[in-house]
């Protein structure tokens, strides 16, 4: 037989097996690591048409999120403000700064500033901002510490698991309604067990895990 199969073929099945296992493991590892929103979305930080800094406005000045995103409590959609809102201050502050040329132009012409949307759930997901912020879910849970971001980046994955993790156990992520827009708020010890559970009960929080809660 040694004439038909040379000696080195003895080890061939083992090598093929090891190779196949390695390849399989490599591909699996690659897919799990890369083919999820934790890789594809997190860290997305587009260049915006105007270099607006949330660090300065929401962090240092302490503006409430709702000064600009004033629809968030009433609507499923958290709006980007019109340039008029910027001009409430920037008609005096930095009023001739070239960085704000686009804002001034937009306020005058009514042509929107082409902001680049960062957090964009797929169109088959029906997320409602108002129900979340009005029931003690803070902006920071899904958007990260925006008040410390000079340029906003996609901080959380917003994957389906991300939603479900909280829907399965909402208590740890609820806070008093007056702290929802305070992104630096740190829950006191045992808050989730005592207050969080109380909020779930008192507010009749029914974080549905039914498909039709989000997919319609």
């Amino acid at each position: 037989m040694s004439d038909v199969f040379p000696k080195w073929t003895n080890k061939l099945p083992g090598k093929v097996l090891i190779g196949a296992l390695l390849l399989g493991a490599g591909v699996t590892a690659g897919l799990t690591y890369y083919f999820t929103p934790k890789y594809t979305r997190v860290g997305y930080q587009p260049i915006q048409p105007v270099a607006f800094s949330h660090t300065i406005h929401a962090g240092q000045l302490g503006l409430d999120c709702r000064y600009c995103h004033n629809g968030v409590e009433k609507s499923w959609y958290s709006n980007v403000p019109s340039a008029n809102t910027c001009m409430n201050c920037h008609n005096q502050v930095l009023k001739d700064d070239p960085k704000l040329a686009l804002v001034r132009e937009s306020a005058q012409s009514g042509k929107p500033i082409p902001w680049v949307q960062i957090h964009k759930t797929p169109d088959y997901v029906y997320f409602n901002h108002s129900v979340h912020v009005n029931r003690g879910v803070s902006c920071v849970h899904c958007h990260g510490p925006v008040n410390k971001m000079d340029e906003v980046r996609h901080a959380k994955s917003l994957s389906m698991t991300f939603c479900l993790d909280c829907h399965r156990n909402p208590a740890p992520n609820l806070r008093p309604p007056d702290q929802v827009y305070n992104l630096d708020w740190v829950p006191p010890q045992n808050f989730a067990k005592t207050q969080g559970a109380k909020f779930v009960h008192d507010w009749k929080v029914n974080a549905s895990q039914n498909c039709s809660a989000c997919h319609r």
């Binding site: 083919f35 979305r41 860290g43 930080q45 797929p122 980046r153």
Partner: peptide
């Protein structure tokens, strides 16, 4: 994961997304 990217996220099934 999490590294800063200027490019929009990859969508696997863009026609549904």
């Amino acid at each position: 994961r999490g590294s800063i990217s200027r490019k929009p996220p990859i969508e696997v099934f863009p026609d549904m997304d």
